[in-house]
Design a protein around this nucleic acid. Sequence first.
DNA 1: CCCCATTACGAATGTCGTAACGATG
DNA 2: CATCGTTACGACATTCGTAATGGGG
Lengths: 320, 320
Amino acid sequence: MATQLRNLSLTSLRTFHAVGRHCHMRRAAEELHVSHPALSRQIRELEARLGTPLFERSGNRLALTAAGRRLHRVVSDAFAQLEKGLLYLDPESLSGEVVIATTATISLSWMLRLLREVRARYPEIRLRLTTIEPRARRLHSDIDIAICLGEPEAPERRVTALYEEHYLPVCSPQLLQQRRFGRPRDLLQLPLLHDTLQQWPSWFTSQGVDYEPGAGEVQFDYAYQAIEAARLGMGLALADRQEVSEDLKEGRLVTVIERPFTIGQSLYLACGRGPDLNARSRLVLGLIFEWLSSRGAPLQAGAEELQRELAAAGGEGVIT
Amino acid sequence: MATQLRNLSLTSLRTFHAVGRHCHMRRAAEELHVSHPALSRQIRELEARLGTPLFERSGNRLALTAAGRRLHRVVSDAFAQLEKGLLYLDPESLSGEVVIATTATISLSWMLRLLREVRARYPEIRLRLTTIEPRARRLHSDIDIAICLGEPEAPERRVTALYEEHYLPVCSPQLLQQRRFGRPRDLLQLPLLHDTLQQWPSWFTSQGVDYEPGAGEVQFDYAYQAIEAARLGMGLALADRQEVSEDLKEGRLVTVIERPFTIGQSLYLACGRGPDLNARSRLVLGLIFEWLSSRGAPLQAGAEELQRELAAAGGEGVIT
DNA sequence: CCCCATTACGAATGTCGTAACGATG
DNA sequence: CATCGTTACGACATTCGTAATGGGG
């Protein structure tokens, strides 16, 4: 059994790809622009190398064996992957700018890390990051991709809900030390860090606790400031899980108590429709989706649909 | 720009795979058992076909261009996939039995569906499903793979925690109708379905509600019986999210209220260690992990490690 | 002066197409 | 007897290896 790829002729795999798809030599030969006997010999050679029949010959009919089906699945996947990867090789088609707009909080929490990944893969793409206000409704026309908190008004663009924000109380592990906070009311022992969304009161209400301002509380304009303050051990911030996922993974922040809490606030993605979406933006979008899903963001149905469309149009590999 | 795979010689891709890895013709030639000039021409031909330089020649040094890095990533992934797929083609190495042991509830909730998938892919493998009690500590020696509720005592096996059970109140959508149950105590309006684990009282306690047996309650021995009763509209069952994921997806059951609740009960996987784990079992394990992760099971760290080991040893594609 | 990549040319290998064969329904 | 897959054989094309060339350090 030659299980090593190096012992195989890759042309025979390409042949097998076509023949396995049609299960019909004549048609496969037509597709490949070669004669039928050529295929027959390629297949036979491949089977000999593998030591396993790939087709069941019953009379004049061809049918894949179980091993054949397995190989065909693998070969099809691999070829599809190659085909997709070939789409965006040409630096010419990538040269140009992609303008990304998002809030200051998102840019600090994950967009910058993502852009580092984008640049490593596609250095030909010039990137520009524009900061917008959290509830911005209008988008400047030269923005290619926008990630907004709240639904923007952009009828000429494709607007997709990404995921609903899911807020967690987080703080520095030093601040928490060994203590455990089992009940929501225990959190009032620590200073709370607010931003203008003012979610702490509704969080306590949702947990059935009366909230009253306590000692050491600080009010910020933006969430990223409250999060940075939490990193510095200044108190408890209420942050979206996705926005602090890297902090949690790397231990700069810890969750204090696990309670599901949302205020119906969603992240929205706005991009050009079909032809208005250039190849560069499609690539960046593909990496955005890979980034979010590889980090467990609970993508909404519309977002997954867009992701599939992009993948079908030709995405690439996996962020490592 | 020839972005079509059919216009490329696949041997040139194989050559590129080696040369790109070494960035050194001489060493790559050694690996492929061919002469250096052969590689040089293959690469040059490939670049011509693609219309894009893949290597930057500065003096005598080779370095991948951005396009080259992208192509190399894609090609490496595709070849790795092929290589893995080739490992388990031979029906000979698969012929034999795999004995899987699990609880009655798990077998009905997802194991049978998974086995259908396994059989479709590897019909050469004979499958046997053995039912064990939820808290079984001892495993019969001819079991290849066991999925247990609670940690089994099996020092000679590799025992891995899969995920912690996460219980949800579920019922038939007909029973729920249009009503919404915002507070945990509202659930007492519906008849509760119990199994011997008796988790309803602790669920209510965890939600700060005093529980007292109400009208229409039914007590079963096993969880799968309570779940089936819930499907039939007999009342509310408390079921592990994973165990009812298919029911939720297909609308046979709906969640009544979302509250995180665990009782520290975990699913454990027991299988042979290294050499005791035959190829057949490895394949089945690979599909088990793909099944669970593609359905969003919150796998524990040890489980993901085992999954990676299996993938490295040679798994296959994705369950569709 | 050594190491490396590239080019040139004759040789070997592999692949292909045409034609004939065998089997099936 | 029409269709299909397989085998046989001569021709073509690609790829290879050896030897020679040209840059860099």
